[in-house]
Design a protein around this nucleic acid. Structure first.
Lengths: 157, 157
DNA sequence: CATGAAACTCGATGGCA
DNA sequence: TGCCATCGAGTTTCATG
């Protein structure tokens, strides 16, 4: 993990379809060197995969919601059942176990309020062991996900 | 936007490095047809770009935080200044204007609490017009981002 | 009008000094 | 590591239903 690797990761995070030659020019390495380093980064698990970034607005998914959930109990069993159920619903885009009130934060996208209602009924309300749900809707996206900031990471040059 | 396009978007969202031939086999179309449709989806803005998905844990970014912020005023000017400042800090991974209490939800990643403190001082505390900050840390990622669910979208076949 | 097959071209991939 | 050869995939062209 030297500055070349960090530069590669940043470049691939921003646009993974750049050619090896272009990446090489950008960071000051040859194309084959880039290829080798990228392969190493993939094998090391730093690069988990490559994905197309879709525009939710263009897809008609104009409603993004963050849903906080509290469980009826913090027992291992209740949490395990809840987490297993979350994995079954692809409508749940993300789910985090949060510190503080020991509850979960979920993220959901829908076309509109009607679509969110459907998700609420078919998915959120079916999660087991939930005692309270608090939904917050996003009005506007000020800054959308464009990757992690890598400068300032532990570099071993 | 028929079922082929939706299948293509789902496949590319999961893994954008599949070859045209493989995509064709998967959805039942030829490679060149896939290529044309993908180009159309790009031109239409449905595909915003292609990105490498990095593993934050492997990068050493083990701490994810969601930060709620309230402003001193809901005036247009205060909000504009705040939003412009957010754009200047790449440490802020995401930022949403939220409904309800008219405040913002930010997302941040750091290596550890020390790193988060640095972000707090250098970045969050420098945002203008902030009256209150409430930070929630994620303990564990139950389900991480794997793309939007596209089945059930408006398809015009 | 979009598709599929084939031709063409470019970049990814692997061996070499 | 960089250079170069090979090979596979992306890209374009064209005829077809």
């Amino acid at each position: 993990m030297d500055r070349f690797d960090i530069a590669l990761l940043e470049a691939l995070q921003a646009d993974s379809r750049r050619s090896m030659a272009e990446l090489g020019d950008r960071i000051g390495l040859s194309a084959s060197a880039c290829h080798r380093r990228i392969k190493a980064l993939e094998d090391a698990g730093l690069i988990a995969g490559y994905a197309a970034r879709l525009d939710p607005e263009a897809l008609g998914l104009t409603l993004q919601a963050f849903v906080e959930m509290s469980l009826t109990s913090q027992s291992r069993e209740t949490m395990d059942r809840f987490e297993a159920a979350v994995a079954d619903f692809p409508e749940i885009l993300e789910c985090h176990l949060m510190a503080g009130q020991a509850d979960y934060l979920l993220r959901v996208a829908a076309a509109d309020l009607k679509g969110f209602d459907a998700i609420h009924r078919d998915c959120l309300a079916r999660l087991p062991g939930v005692s309270a749900i608090r939904t917050s809707f996003a009005i506007r996206r000020i800054r959308d996900w464009q990757g992690y900031r890598l400068r300032g990471l532990r570099a071993s040059p």
